[in-house]
Amino acid sequence: MRQGIYTVAGNRALTEGVWELRLLGDTGSITAPGQFINIKLEGFFLRRPISICDWSGEALTVVYKVVGKGTEVLSQMGAGEKLDVLCGLGNGFDISKCGGRTVVAGGGAGVPPMYGLAKALLRTGKSPTALLGFNTKKEIFYEEEFRALGVETVVTTADGSYGRKGFVTEAFPEEYDYVCACGPLPMLRAAYDAAATSGQFSFEERMGCGFGACMGCSCKTKYGNKRICRDGPVLEKEEIIW
């Protein structure tokens, strides 16, 4: 983890309520896809943890959903503005454990970290399949970005207004050897239940610090108590207790 002042390079709405923020600054502390940053916002006591979507060199991208006053303020930040950021938090996905045909499943606001994961898997010569689940057509984002990577991409909508109707679990391919998932708890649970293989699942929890000091986001696992912010947010399938 490193603390730094980052410059906003861009901040645009991808859908109604989902924004993509590009930041310039030190990305040296990022060690794996699925890690997150914790952003200090003027006027708010706690930082806002947001998963890293993509990074390279001195640039990183996060995609976030406006859910409250903090993310509302964040969505109003414009190019050139500065943000105090803790970068490279959490464990992220361990791509060394992923198979050559890993299913990369994202649900809603859980889609962004799967982009960085898909990219990392491609870099190591693996051929992931991306399953992107949304409620409805107007909430879809990043479909083109995933396709542009050259990743086989399936979009599902719960109401059938676009792509395959249903949840990501119904779009699992015939053959796969590993599952990585990020999304709301019911989606994670469904992906866990549907997975015929081992896998890694990224969890969300309300956090205090984001770096392991306050025990605000603890959970029980088969390997003992873990902090979602520090020992997670990614847990291995075998250790998860629902």
């Binding site: 708010f44 006591f45 706690l46 929890e205 956090m207 306050c214 025990m215 603890s218 108590n225």
Partner: peptide, 23 residues
């Protein structure tokens, strides 16, 4: 002690609430 169930943290103006429960 594991402590309390989550959420354990809530924000407020100029501060925060915690209910970690002595984990």
């Amino acid at each position: 002690r594991f402590g309390n169930p989550t959420p354990r943290i809530a924000e407020c103006p100029a501060g925060m609430l915690n209910a970690v429960g002595l984990q």
